[in-house]
């Protein structure tokens, strides 16, 4: 009961935070993705042929939606938890009888909430440019939630280790964004030379984007089972890792 109240307090606090500063948290993704749809999908995409039997516009929509889920879930947790360390109000949580898993769950749910909300807005934006007839609701929703969870966890781990504001922008800029672009948002890896195809398989984001694309439009380069295994496996690993870090007090206790 105590833990439930604490959890609810944290989640409401997190959601209120990103809604209050919506021009920084919700708007940017919508603007960028609308530009993607317009430039790549509409203007340039019209000159491309179909990929795997779907128009280029339709092909990129799932990846663009998932990209905004990834970056927003990650950004929400990394910024919010790091700010909590920076302002030292992490101490408010440390002195209170909250289990570590509740702290983690509260932050991850905050990240999921923002990731999914932005995802929904971006999806709505994409409907201005194309129609989506969901191919498989189950796969779509599971991957959607799992991805938001995974990157919320990743943001949490980043915040735990971060010691400066630079530390919370380095990983998103130099790791997350490149991996997302190389994860096949705008192309099918079958279009790449053999070596690059093999290398791409080491990119976890590739699996999520393909699974999501399968869910939305029924097209994928990767077996769905493997995609689920990868995403689920990473999520489980990061959950355990985060709990170990919290338990040891790394980055938050002297």
């Amino acid at each position: 009961m105590n833990n439930f109240i604490a959890f609810r307090t944290l989640v409401i606090e997190e959601i209120r935070r990103f809604i209050r500063i919506w021009p920084q948290t919700l708007l940017p993704s919508v603007v960028t993705t609308a530009l993607y749809f317009m430039i790549f999908g509409h203007l340039i995409g019209e000159r491309f042929g179909d990929i795997d039997g779907v128009s280029y516009m339709d092909y990129i929509v799932p990846g663009v939606i998932l990209m905004s889920v990834i970056s927003n879930a990650y950004a929400n947790v990394v910024a919010s938890f790091y700010l909590r360390k920076f302002q030292r109000n992490i101490e408010e949580l440390l002195v209170a009888p909250i289990a570590n898993w509740v702290i983690l769950l509260g932050y991850v749910c905050g990240g999921i909430a923002r990731g999914m909300l932005v995802g929904i807005i971006v999806t709505a934006t994409s409907l201005l440019f194309t129609d989506i007839n969901v191919h498989h609701w189950g796969v779509t929703l599971t991957i959607y939630i799992l991805t938001a969870t995974l990157f919320s966890l990743a943001g949490f781990v980043n915040a735990i280790f971060a010691n400066s504001f630079d530390d919370i922008s380095t990983i998103p800029n130099f790791v997350l964004t490149p991996l997302t672009y190389l994860g096949g948002i705008f192309y099918s890896i079958t279009m790449l030379p053999e070596l690059w195809q093999q290398l791409s398989l080491a990119n976890p984001i590739l699996y999520m984007i393909n699974a999501f694309r399968y869910g939305l439009i029924g097209v994928t380069d990767i077996k769905i089972e493997i995609a689920f295994l990868m995403t689920g496996g990473f999520t489980l690993f990061l959950t355990i890792f985060s709990l170990v870090l919290l338990h040891k007090g790394i980055g938050i206790k002297d």
Binding site: I5, A6, L83, R88, L93, A96, P97
Partner: peptide, 25 residues
Amino acid sequence: EMNFNQFETVQNIVLNQAGYYGIPR
């Protein structure tokens, strides 16, 4: 040392802390 959220209102700081302690709303 000060250790509360500088962007939060006074009331919410105290109210949230009560929540962390598991006190019903």
